Amino acid sequence: MADDLKSSATRTGLNGAGLKIGIVQSRFNPKIVSALLAACIEELNRSGIVGDDIVLFTVPGALEIPLLLQELASTQQFDGLIALGCVIRGDTYHFEVVCNESARAISELQLQYQIPVANAVLTTENEQQAEHRAIIKGKESAQVVLEMVLSLKRIRSTQRPPERKLSA
């Protein structure tokens, strides 16, 4: 299991030094989101993203995450963003609304602003599932945002204006 938790970012040689990452974390289910955050930051640090290059904001719950992500994206000061939260199924339909709407909004804003957003808002049946997934998903969120940022940078740096052929 320890091998499963090793950083694939480290294994693949991804280096995030100099990148600026914004994190928006829900305060709901604090034990779970604290584990998500710790694992995420540890992985960002391992990849070379440290100190002031990681900016954290907290919000009340998962439905509030997209608004702050949108605001951060609009500043154009971040290379990538990470959403951290935990929604545990209850007895009402509210679970589906929160899960579906937060995921939809997060996906839409990354396309609208063309910035990678790693969605690590856990949606689980119970607290035990959430506890089991927190460290893994926290690390994966850092790996996902790093890989996507570096991939986009590579694509964008190789884009050239189309060549125009002059007719003789």
Results as ranks from 00 to 15, higher is better:
1 M>E: 06
1 M>Y: 11
2 A>M: 13
3 D>R: 01
4 D>C: 09
6 K>H: 05
7 S>V: 04
9 A>H: 03
9 A>L: 13
10 T>N: 08
13 G>P: 14
13 G>T: 11
14 L>M: 13
14 L>D: 05
15 N>W: 06
24 V>E: 03
25 Q>D: 03
25 Q>W: 07
29 N>L: 01
31 K>H: 07
36 L>Y: 02
37 L>I: 04
42 E>H: 06
42 E>P: 02
43 E>W: 05
43 E>G: 03
47 S>G: 11
47 S>R: 05
47 S>I: 02
48 G>T: 09
50 V>Q: 14
51 G>R: 08
51 G>S: 11
53 D>P: 10
54 I>Q: 07
54 I>N: 13
55 V>R: 07
56 L>G: 10
60 P>K: 03
60 P>Q: 01
61 G>W: 01
62 A>I: 11
62 A>G: 14
63 L>V: 08
63 L>S: 05
66 P>S: 00
67 L>A: 12
68 L>S: 07
72 L>K: 10
77 Q>L: 02
77 Q>I: 04
80 G>S: 02
81 L>M: 01
82 I>V: 14
84 L>V: 10
84 L>I: 08
86 C>T: 10
88 I>H: 02
90 G>L: 00
90 G>I: 00
94 H>G: 10
95 F>M: 00
95 F>Q: 00
97 V>G: 00
99 C>M: 01
100 N>G: 15
100 N>P: 13
101 E>I: 06
104 R>D: 13
105 A>V: 03
106 I>Q: 00
108 E>M: 07
110 Q>K: 15
114 Q>N: 13
118 A>P: 12
120 A>C: 00
121 V>R: 03
124 T>G: 05
126 N>H: 15
128 Q>H: 07
132 H>M: 04
133 R>H: 09
133 R>W: 08
133 R>S: 06
135 I>W: 04
136 I>D: 06
137 K>I: 06
138 G>M: 04
140 E>P: 13
140 E>I: 05
141 S>F: 04
147 E>G: 15
148 M>I: 11
150 L>K: 15
150 L>Q: 11
153 K>E: 10
154 R>S: 15
156 R>Y: 10
157 S>A: 12
157 S>V: 02
161 P>H: 11
164 R>P: 09
164 R>N: 08
164 R>E: 12
166 L>D: 02
